[in-house]
Amino acid sequence: MAFVLGIDVGSSYSKAIVLEEGEIRSYAVIPSGGDYREAGRVAARAALEELNLTFGDIARTVAAGYGGNMIDFADDTSTDISCHAAGVHYLFPSVKTVMDVGAQYSRAIRLDDEGRIANFIMNEKCAGGSGKFLQVAARILGIKVSEIGELSLTAQKAVEFTTGCAVFAESEAVSRISEGASPADILAGIHNAMASKIVTLVIRVGLTPDCAVTGGGAMDIGLVKAIGRELGTSVFVPEEPRITAALGAALMARETLKTS
């Protein structure tokens, strides 16, 4: 009976997962703030406390993500891209294409049959396909990001944005509000614009069904549906889409333990 720990320190959130015999036993998601080292430790501690465990009970730890290299108590590090691949493969073995929509970036990852990366493309220079776009939308409409998904589903006629650029879309959204467009129609339009950016990445990486969406963006049901429409297929979404990289890291820790 060995516990392993996977940590993913992202630019916005840090996540930690404890696995035992390949089963998820606990996890935690906390805001990263400015101190990645501390954020990783706090997330790990929160996941351990749920099981009344301490760091001493953990056989192996793998850290990933933006601040993964700063986790000094980790035995090993990996990229969050590989970890996403491993995590999604564990949850949905048939998935070959992953769209990870984070706060600052979006990326598409193609997996091989073993759940390893076959190809990946990142887009972190343009906010158009990332969670940033949703934050901008929430701010203009005076709602919470978490309310966007459900509200967008009530749209009657999605607003068509003439731009896929988050910066220009902001002023376009403001003009549409003044023209009387409903918040739901605006959000549905934003989802469509984002979906088309994300699917462009998927095409570049080589669309291979089945597909899954992960990251904070996958918590937005409206965006997930828009991506599905754009792809012309349904997509898998993990129950907690923010923890797939931490899960992958934990699986890697387990793998090394098995082979060492």
Binding site: S78, T79, I81, D112, E114, R116, A118, N119, F120
Partner: peptide, 11 residues
């Protein structure tokens, strides 16, 4: 990105 690319090469 480079690290992920190296992992892709390994696979």
């Amino acid at each position: 990105r480079i690290d992920a690319f190296i992992e892709t090469l390994a696979a």
